[in-house]
Design a protein around this nucleic acid. Sequence first.
DNA 1: GATGAATGAGCTTTCATTCAT
DNA 2: GATGAATGAAAGCTCATTCAT
Lengths: 192, 192, 192, 192
Amino acid sequence: MRTSDKHSKIIQAAIKVFARKGFFNARISDIAKEAKVADGTIYLYFNNKFDILITLFEEEIGKLILEIKQLIKNETDPAKQLKIFALYHMQLIENKKELVEVLQLEIRQSNTYMKEYRNTKFIEYIDLIAEIIQQGQETGLFGKHIPPGIAKRAYLGALDEMSRLWILAPDPPFTTEQAAEQISDIFINGLQ
Amino acid sequence: MRTSDKHSKIIQAAIKVFARKGFFNARISDIAKEAKVADGTIYLYFNNKFDILITLFEEEIGKLILEIKQLIKNETDPAKQLKIFALYHMQLIENKKELVEVLQLEIRQSNTYMKEYRNTKFIEYIDLIAEIIQQGQETGLFGKHIPPGIAKRAYLGALDEMSRLWILAPDPPFTTEQAAEQISDIFINGLQ
Amino acid sequence: MRTSDKHSKIIQAAIKVFARKGFFNARISDIAKEAKVADGTIYLYFNNKFDILITLFEEEIGKLILEIKQLIKNETDPAKQLKIFALYHMQLIENKKELVEVLQLEIRQSNTYMKEYRNTKFIEYIDLIAEIIQQGQETGLFGKHIPPGIAKRAYLGALDEMSRLWILAPDPPFTTEQAAEQISDIFINGLQ
Amino acid sequence: MRTSDKHSKIIQAAIKVFARKGFFNARISDIAKEAKVADGTIYLYFNNKFDILITLFEEEIGKLILEIKQLIKNETDPAKQLKIFALYHMQLIENKKELVEVLQLEIRQSNTYMKEYRNTKFIEYIDLIAEIIQQGQETGLFGKHIPPGIAKRAYLGALDEMSRLWILAPDPPFTTEQAAEQISDIFINGLQ
DNA sequence: GATGAATGAGCTTTCATTCAT
DNA sequence: GATGAATGAAAGCTCATTCAT
């Protein structure tokens, strides 16, 4: 079958299975069944279980980066750009809940069980924030005393920990939009 | 002395081993060797591998909560309390690096591989922040429009993602004190 | 030209691959790559992996038998015929090293993993020696007390174990011709 | 269980299973079942499947060497020593048939699938013959023109190929004693 | 006839857990 | 209570074979 893109079918299946069980509890046969391919087929497209996870990181975060860049491009105000980022990031929990679960859980693990792997795409993603903050500092919107290297982490961490709420609890007392709004407000104010 | 210090010897060994290898890659025999007990001895004190992790959570976070409460008790200004929390949390990376690694990595995993387990101690820990913010809102220091349930998560997430830097990189360009200061400043300003 | 030379291309490739890796470690895809055909093509010419090995035995030993018969035909002295056989057998290690490796290793295995297979060609090959010895006994050159069924095996075993030296060691301290000469001398003397 | 020597139970089981199926077709679970231990127990005593085979080589050939040395010690005539060796080697097929099958098949394979492994014990075994022949050359019994390095191989090869007969065929028309006698006669005569 | 992507049975090895001592 | 040898279920990965193109 040429038409059915096995590579992405497997990646999408892996997202579902990893989200449901976590990387270590996920079995290759789970992914294969979810992707409706044979176990062995997975090894035609990936070297091993880790390779699926790493490829998943690279490709999916890569897509997120492209989408965010697209959204930010037309906006020049760094404050509004920060809001866009927050909103986009928070809404992932609605649009791509399973992906978020995998990224949240496994990216942090990755440095433990894959000592050699440097998650460059994740760094690229988080650096989108640093760039916005630097622009804000150059235009005088944000104070220059705060290193973007700190602020970017703080911002992403705040958003990410927030979105964990939707993973753990079924119905939080506010929407992702409200959360994004509140957190970006705190930072935009706080950074001035 | 407690009935036996084997219990805590095993917990301390588990912290080291989980930090080094992650929960799934850690073997019971690793922990036993580190604790200088026999493999079977571990099962006299814990039901299974998960039980070690859960007990570790409860006990160690419990200690952190007690310590923080002690530090905050003598301070009435919520802004300063927030700073104390930030400083304490960030300095954990220096005082209890291995514990931080375990908590960061495994707490987030815990809901995936231990579906039934509710990490109540972690909730208690994060609620320390909510209490401070609520006090700040009552005294008029912080705006009332921001739900403490959002702010507490954002604050902890910001600090936690920040401290990940010390786990991943050996020598960041700033101290934990500076990072704590910066992040608490952002939030104290941003919450007003 | 035969209907297709794919058959022999595959056999020749199999000799190389089996010599390099052994039958069990050899993969069908290795043979296919070496033969420059697709994996599936092999199954148009052979029933399965074993079938390649068996066919290889039959055909290649068959060729050896024909060649030896040709060489022996013009010589009537059984002693000289034995020498011719020894020289031919030992020189195989130079002319067809890979084939020798396969035959040495896999013929002995064959009765273990292919319980039903009787290597009749190999028996035919070794019986060339028996015939020579019988003639020698009839002409009075060799003593009649030694059963040709023993002597043929001893002779082939001696030569074969000798030629293993060239497989294992790169540069033995004597030539294949010398080895053939020495061994045939021992037997010709010893059989009188 | 301290009394039951698991190590040798596993080795003895491996000999049986390797003899029956060959190394590659033998499954660890076959050996475990034969040894009446759990699969995992095997890995408490051996690193892997290869390790079982290698240890088997070393230990079992080591025993053979000791036994032969004991038999030869009391005999000073090299010709008689050669006979003793031949008789001992041929009778192995009766006393330790399964071991012989394994050694015959797998020793020759060993250089193919265990590229790095040098079968030093086997070399030691075959050098027993070389030593006898050298003594015979020194005492003038054997001609000095034949390199012991050739003769030892030829002798072992002859005996070994002979003993293959008992593996392949159930009831040969002569006894192992007769075969040993005939072959040693050929060589003792032939070497003079 | 030729291809090579896809299949899935099969096997080595690991390791949490048990239990006789 | 303490030990650690023994257990055996479980799963990642391989590769001979098939079959749609």
